[in-house]
């Protein structure tokens, strides 16, 4: 344990020297054995196939992909829930395949899953938030402090003594985020955490994430198939069949409408309108992503 601690320290110093890279994957590949009903391996599926990317500390990164694009498999690597078949994953300088460092990885990059019900462990909101720090062996007083802080960060302090059963999907996901925040992570990975929510719930979760990113400097890695959720990201990666098909700033990625469609995704309606206007010869900046910006741009066009 002690030597593990020293190792982290050393790596962190080395890392700081280079640049503030929080997550780095190099030629990451993962293969599953496809099994038939008897459990015999009948084939091999390469769920992700050579993903190399870096996430800088403090960034808000969105990873997009249709079902079966490998985005969930990718997420699980960042939390050491899966280990690479090929390639490496570094989380805050730690190689995730080092078994004695697993807990350190999970503490640094916390993970929120898709189904809100299946990740809340306790019958009382505050006890659920305390679950992570309790596992880490944080002293009781400090846990109490962290629980109060993280519930405030997600705006759920009112529900501290409630049962999670009567909360909405969006509220449950915010509790799950608070549970991660109480572990004092550097990064939160969200594996399709908005997929089962209604629009109001999705908005709540996204607002919470952007606030944590802005105010607490938490690095966010949001994995989703809703393109709108990528609009305000610092960087966007689009996965297709386990490979990165597109990468860049949202404005650039959203401009590639044919490729987006090819990846099984759909452009947000604003981008689709902009694209149609462009095709008809209207000089509108194709990087426009919000209705407000579009009406402004058209207003300027009218004034010319």
């Amino acid at each position: 344990m002690r030597s593990g601690g020293l190792k982290v320290l050393w790596r962190r110093i080395m890392q700081k020297k280079k640049e503030a890279v929080l997550i780095e994957t190099k030629d990451l590949a993962h293969e599953y054995g496809r099994r038939d009903e008897n459990g015999d391996v009948t084939g091999i599926v390469r769920a992700i196939d050579g993903i190399s990317l870096t996430v800088r500390a403090g960034d808000f990164v969105t990873v997009l992909g249709a079902n079966g694009s490998g985005k969930s498999t990718f997420a699980r690597h960042l939390n050491a829930l899966l280990h690479p078949t090929e390639g490496v994953v570094y989380v805050d300088g730690i190689d995730t395949s080092e078994e004695e460092m697993t807990l350190a990885v999970r503490q640094t990059a916390g993970m929120v899953f898709q189904n809100p019900d299946n990740q809340i462990i306790s019958n009382v909101v505050e006890e659920d938030v305390a679950f992570g720090p309790e596992n880490m062996g944080v002293p009781s007083l400090e846990i109490k402090k962290r629980v109060a802080e993280s519930l405030a960060q997600v705006g759920m302090q009112k529900y501290r003594h409630h049962s999670p059963n009567h909360l909405s999907g969006g509220q449950k996901q915010r509790i799950a985020i608070a549970g991660i925040m109480a572990m004092h992570p550097k990064c939160i990975v969200l594996d399709e955490a908005t997929a089962m929510l209604d629009p109001a719930g999705r908005r709540q979760v996204l607002e919470t994430l952007h606030r944590l990113n802005r105010e607490e400097g938490i690095t966010i890695l949001l994995i989703t198939h809703y393109m709108e959720e990528a609009a305000e990201a610092d960087a966007v990666y689009v996965l297709k069949q386990g490979k990165i098909a597109l990468a860049g700033r949202p404005e650039t990625v959203f401009g590639e409408s044919d490729k987006i469609k090819d990846c099984g995704l759909a452009l947000p309606d604003v981008s689709r309108i902009v694209q149609k206007l462009n095709n008809a010869g209207l000089p509108i900046d194709k990087r426009i992503l919000t209705p407000e910006k579009l009406t402004e741009a058209l207003g300027r066009l009218a004034a010319e």
Binding site: R272, I273, K276, L277, A280, P291, T295, L298, A302
Partner: peptide
């Protein structure tokens, strides 16, 4: 929403644009 706010700005856009195609066509 886009069609409505354009109309408020004085654009000659009909009041029944609710899909991408309808709004885009109206603007074109």
């Amino acid at each position: 929403k886009i069609a409505n706010s354009l109309r408020e700005k004085g654009f000659a856009i009909p009041g029944d644009c609710i899909t991408v195609d309808e709004t885009a066509d109206a603007v074109i």
